[in-house]
Simulated scan of single mutants.
Amino acid sequence: MLRMRPRCMGCAQPLAGDSPAFICSYECTWCPRCAGGFAGVCPNCAGELVRRPRRTTGAAAIVSRVPDRIRRFVRRTGGPA
């Protein structure tokens, strides 16, 4: 699962799950202002910077859409449900 970092690695600006941000393949996270100066390349790892997907749904809403058979399996295996 993608780790949604809460702050820009450059300026430490808070980044909510639904706010625009940029990430690379190592999940270095940058606000649009900082990423604008990098020409699409992460300064930490030289990976490609792309728009971070927005997380608009909370975990409770996702679980409510999971079929019952999957919830039973997760409970049986000891995972969160």
Rank of each mutant, 00 (worst) to 15 (best):
R3Y: 13
R3A: 12
R3K: 08
M4S: 09
M4T: 14
R5W: 13
P6Q: 09
P6D: 14
R7T: 15
R7M: 12
M9N: 12
M9Q: 15
M9P: 03
C11P: 00
A12D: 15
P14K: 09
P14R: 08
L15S: 04
L15C: 01
A16K: 10
G17M: 14
G17E: 08
D18A: 03
D18W: 04
S19A: 15
A21F: 00
I23N: 00
I23L: 05
I23D: 00
I23P: 01
S25A: 15
E27C: 07
C28I: 02
W30Q: 01
W30C: 00
C31W: 02
C31G: 02
P32E: 03
P32W: 03
R33N: 08
R33W: 07
A35K: 07
A35N: 08
N44Q: 12
A46Q: 14
G47T: 00
L49A: 01
L49E: 03
R51M: 09
R51F: 10
R52E: 02
P53K: 11
P53F: 01
P53S: 04
R54Q: 15
R54D: 06
R55H: 05
R55I: 07
T57Y: 09
A59E: 13
A59W: 11
A60Y: 04
A60P: 00
A60T: 13
V63W: 15
V63E: 12
R65A: 14
V66H: 02
V66W: 11
D68T: 14
D68W: 08
R69C: 13
R71T: 03
R72I: 15
R72L: 12
R72F: 06
F73C: 08
V74Y: 06
V74H: 07
V74E: 03
R76W: 12
T77G: 10
G79A: 07
A81P: 10
